[in-house]
Amino acid sequence: MSTYVITGAGSGIGRLVAERLHARGDALIVLARSARRAAELIAAFPGSAAVIADLADPSALAAAIDEAGLPAEIDGIVHGAGIVELGAVADLPRDAWTSQLTVNLVAPAELTRLLLPRVRAARGHVLFVNSGAGLNAHPGWAAYAASKHGLKALADALRGEEGPHGVRVTTVYPGRTATPLQEKVHEQEGAAYDADRWIDPASVATAIMTALDLPRDAVISDLSVRPGPR
């Protein structure tokens, strides 16, 4: 049995990864922004534990982790949470930049830093669910893409730094995936949402599980998942 910390376990890709890990008997530690949300997730994944903290406030993570009383070894962190607010550079307010950079980049960096001694002890794995926007920035996507480009840089640097400690680091770049986040993107774009046009989140979850379960003689450093032909 392995122990995984997961952000974004409440919906979308993170939810499916959590379901698969829990179903095979792995121990889950879910990050929840409130006690109510933590109770919901623990009910969904019996036997799991929770860290109660809001990724919008990374300064609160250290105290939340101390309070949670986590085990000395953590086999993996799956960074699945994220937010998006689209807009042209000429129009997007400062708060939209700050919130996306905080939740999508600063919080994962801080959570990783705080948990790294436990991950090192397990010779574990840090996996970042990034986005195609972490590789290419399109009009209207500047702030979100900047946060995801930064997340790629974080993963690349971490991989080089932690390899000597036996820690593996993976970034997964899903294309447009049929999740609640994608539905929100369509609302912001003013476009009709058709889930059948996009990647099934279960397919991305399969890619993530493949990376996590790869034998220790190898690591999937970067993995792009794109919509297949229709």
Rank of each mutant, 00 (worst) to 15 (best):
V169E: 11
G25N: 05
D222L: 06
V119Y: 07
A157I: 14
A68V: 09
E85C: 07
L181N: 05
D57P: 00
V172F: 09
V185W: 11
A96S: 15
A23W: 12
A109C: 07
D196N: 08
A142T: 15
I83T: 15
R33S: 12
L16R: 15
T177W: 03
V5N: 04
V225A: 12
D156V: 07
V106S: 08
A205K: 02
M1Y: 08
D54L: 01
V106M: 11
L114F: 00
R197K: 12
E187R: 13
A56C: 01
V106T: 14
T102Q: 09
A60L: 00
Q188F: 07
V185A: 04
E40V: 07
V30T: 04
L114C: 05
V129A: 07
T112G: 13
V84I: 13
G134D: 02
G12P: 07
V5D: 12
R120C: 13
P164V: 06
I42Q: 14
Y193T: 05
L181T: 07
V84F: 10
D75Y: 00
I220H: 11
A157N: 08
R118K: 10
R118G: 06
E162F: 01
A38V: 01
Y173A: 10
A205R: 07
T7R: 08
A205H: 05
A56M: 02
E189Y: 04
H186L: 02
G10C: 04
A218D: 08
S147N: 05
A122S: 13
L127C: 06
V129F: 02
G76R: 05
G82R: 02
R176K: 12
A53G: 02
R113G: 04
G140K: 00
V84H: 08
